[in-house]
Simulated scan of single mutants.
Amino acid sequence: MSKKRLFAIIVLSATFAATGARADVTHSPLDAANRGVAAQGDADEATIRRLLAQFRTIKIPLSQAVAIAEHLHDGSRTADVSFEISGPAIYRVRTVGNERLWENVIDANTGSVTEKALSSSLRDLDREDLGNIVALKSVEQELSDAVRIAEKAAAGSALAGGLMKQDGKLNFVVVIASGDRLEEVTLEPPRVGKQGSN
Rank of each mutant, 00 (worst) to 15 (best):
R22C: 04
N171H: 07
L130A: 10
G196A: 03
D31M: 09
G179Q: 08
H71S: 14
S86C: 04
D126S: 09
R123T: 15
A39T: 05
Q195A: 14
A150V: 09
I9Y: 12
Q166E: 15
V66N: 12
L118F: 15
L163Q: 09
V174A: 02
G156V: 04
A33N: 12
I68N: 04
V175G: 06
G168L: 03
P190S: 13
F172W: 10
G193A: 03
E45S: 10
A65E: 09
S2F: 09
L187A: 06
S119Y: 02
G196Q: 08
T19G: 13
V66G: 09
R100M: 10
G161A: 00
K194D: 07
V173D: 13
V37C: 06
W102F: 09
E99Q: 13
D31F: 04
I176L: 01
A69R: 03
K165H: 11
S144A: 11
S2K: 15
D126L: 01
I58G: 06
R100K: 14
I68A: 04
D44S: 00
K169S: 06
D80A: 10
D24G: 10
D107K: 07
W102T: 12
R123Y: 05
A18L: 10
R22M: 03
W102E: 12
R50L: 02
R191C: 04
L125E: 12
D124A: 09
G179Y: 01
I58P: 13
K137D: 12
A155D: 13
N34E: 01
A89H: 03
L72P: 15
K137H: 07
V192K: 15
L170F: 06
V93F: 01
E103L: 14
T57W: 00
K4E: 10
V147H: 00
S86P: 07
G87T: 14
L62G: 07
G193R: 05
E184K: 15
E99D: 11
V105A: 05
A150D: 08
M164W: 01
S178P: 11
E188Q: 11
N171P: 03
D44M: 00
I133Q: 13
D129H: 08
K137G: 11
G193P: 11
A89E: 13
A67H: 06
A39H: 00
E115D: 14
A160N: 03
G161E: 02
R148D: 15
R191F: 04
Q54M: 08
V81T: 10
I48F: 00
S13Q: 14
N109Y: 05
V105M: 05
R123I: 06
T15C: 15
N171I: 07
K137I: 02
A32E: 06
L118D: 15
Q64E: 11
I85P: 08
Y91W: 03
K194G: 07
L125D: 07
L12K: 09
D180K: 13
A46V: 04
I106Q: 10
K137N: 12
K137R: 11
K3H: 13
S28N: 12
V134E: 11
M164G: 09
E140L: 08
N104R: 06
R56V: 06
